[in-house]
Design a protein around this nucleic acid. Sequence first.
DNA 1: TTAATATACGGAGGCTCCCTCCGTTTTGCA
DNA 2: TGCAAAACGGAGGGAGCCTCCGTATATTAA
Lengths: 194, 194
Amino acid sequence: MKQKATAQTRKPRADSARNRQLLIDAAKTGFADAGLNVSLEEIARRAGVGIGTLYRHFPSREAVVEAVYRREVEQLVEAVPQLLETSPAGEALHQWMHLFVNYIATKRLIAPSLAAAVGRTSAPHATPAELITRAISTLVKNAVRSGDVRKDIDPSDLLRALVGVSYGNPDAGWESSARRLIDILMDGLRCKGR
Amino acid sequence: MKQKATAQTRKPRADSARNRQLLIDAAKTGFADAGLNVSLEEIARRAGVGIGTLYRHFPSREAVVEAVYRREVEQLVEAVPQLLETSPAGEALHQWMHLFVNYIATKRLIAPSLAAAVGRTSAPHATPAELITRAISTLVKNAVRSGDVRKDIDPSDLLRALVGVSYGNPDAGWESSARRLIDILMDGLRCKGR
DNA sequence: TTAATATACGGAGGCTCCCTCCGTTTTGCA
DNA sequence: TGCAAAACGGAGGGAGCCTCCGTATATTAA
């Protein structure tokens, strides 16, 4: 299960792992306190490590953000099979979209970085954006097969819409707005015998 | 018609007006060439003026962006009465949404600054965001009255969706994606006798 | 025309942030 | 216990943001 190249590798250093976690925690609270534009130096400061350490663990701001929201993305992905078991496919899709808004609502930072990433598939391994794309693709495919939604739906389109709808500024009943829009979208998606 | 305070004012200086226009032009090409993150100093350089001059005319990056896209916003707003004359209200709304995507597509910068502004109504005079909000409100109201779309629609919600849908990254068939989504949205909006 | 003055200009400078590089420190392993 | 490998820290160069103020120029009145 462990990755193992041609040569045997050392056990990873304890301080490295610890600092990585400290950084992620600091980033999480930093983003929450000071918005998406906290300086990386501020994050390093909060974590009590040098800026160099931050950059060693996360080569870019993107990478930091991704590490922070990776958890939520995983939960979002894991919810799919369960939803498909307990609900008809169309309903599963609908519920998942609301779930998406939930996660976006708590952590305000998924949307922006997701928005930038939806199109691209260049990354070597599975990026969060790709994971989510797969999740929604599964849901859409099922819903199309079961006849719950029209078949001319591109899952990426839908994801884009979802991200877009979740993009608004934090204040002013943003979340309920997103929820209303999802319901409208869903109405547009359904097969209405036409 | 001219603004005139208690004291009579001087004629505004010619160089000021000229520089302002140079700056707007430079910003327009600058945004097009180098993306939304061109430095303001670069814009000033392109315009052949000092950075101080830029800041005197436009107190913030936001203001620069707004000046650049003001034209498109105005056209978007002006299209409303015409659309309402030539099409049934529901269709007018639909067409206007496509028009919106058109303008966004050519100038890639309306969406971001609009996204930040949709909620707020704090500004003293009519901001572009408010102008657009008014435009879409008119269209929605008409469409609701004529029975073309359901009545539980908040125009701001719809604008948010429009902005969101138009937010994607430039590459990769973004525009057609936005158009498909608009059609789906519109299907969701229509009164379907239920 | 010319002088007076309101108005606008330019860019140096102080600040913050980004990111790299390398001397120092810590950790895992033998 | 000793020795590399691995990780740390933060100084420093570069860039962008924005302000401030001495200088330049347009407008107006004489």
